[in-house]
């Protein structure tokens, strides 16, 4: 029985989850009013963000006013939770587990190959491996920061015109903000898949803080 995640970290994680979901949901309500992004070349469109069926299925149409109201309400909770999380990781020293180092990228390759079933090598057995370090640091901290910065650039483009210029312009900032939102969705899918793979012991540790450890086999069975 080994302590894995401290109480504060678990709270930040589980508070962030519904907040981020609400931000993405209200963001889709806003995006719908000018849904111009697509994957394609010239006149050929491979995928439109988003197909009409998607809007209809989730009731995302005609909610611009509501979406903006929610977005500019919940943004405070999202930002405050993010600031508390970063402050806590810095002050407590938890950042040492999270920030990637020189070996992380090589290790991340190994982990990816392993998880795709292409390599049978033994994975590093510690709290977060290189892939996790990169994923968590870049997604949680950098993407969160990016969302706030690009969001501010769309929210107050005249007052922070310098920021819009830095991001490539008002419309560029809007696109970047959208990309980050899609990034969270992608992260969520992979994250949930990995949590399911890792199993109950790992999931429980994100709630209770403890995982059971075999002294012969190590923490990951």
């Amino acid at each position: 029985m080994k302590e894995k995640h401290r109480l504060a970290i678990r709270w930040f994680h589980w508070v962030n989850f519904p907040l981020l979901a609400l931000m993405i949901w209200s963001g889709l309500w806003i995006y719908w009013a000018n849904d111009v992004y697509r994957i394609g070349l010239g006149r050929l469109t491979l995928f439109k963000f988003f197909p009409q069926g998607f809007y209809s299925a989730f009731g995302l149409k005609q909610h611009l006013a509501e979406g903006m109201a929610w977005h500019f309400y919940f943004m405070w909770f999202f930002v405050v939770n993010g600031i508390l999380y970063v402050t806590y990781t810095v002050v407590s020293g938890e950042w040492r587990y999270l920030v990637p180092n020189r070996q992380s990228f090589r290790e991340a390759m190994l982990v990816t190959l392993h998880d795709l079933g292409l390599s049978k090598g033994k994975l590093p057995q510690r709290k977060f491996n290189g892939a996790q370090q990169i994923a968590y640091t870049s997604s949680i901290i950098l993407m969160g920061f990016g969302s706030v910065v690009t969001g501010l650039a769309i929210y107050k483009p005249i007052q922070v015109a310098w920021l819009d210029a830095l991001l490539g312009g008002y419309q560029a900032a809007r696109f970047e903000h959208f990309l980050l939102a899609m990034g969270y969705v992608l992260f969520f899918v992979i994250h949930v898949a990995q949590v399911i793979r890792a199993g109950w012991n790992n999931f429980r540790s994100m709630v209770s803080g403890y995982e059971s450890v075999s002294l012969e086999k190590g923490p990951h069975e």
Binding site: G199, N201, S214
Partner: peptide, 18 residues
């Protein structure tokens, strides 16, 4: 109590000292 449901839960210990 979930620990019992989980046959892979590796709580077996090798030695009393440990």
């Amino acid at each position: 109590p979930p620990a019992e449901d989980d046959p892979t839960s590796p709580t077996a210990l090798g030695a009393p000292v440990q």
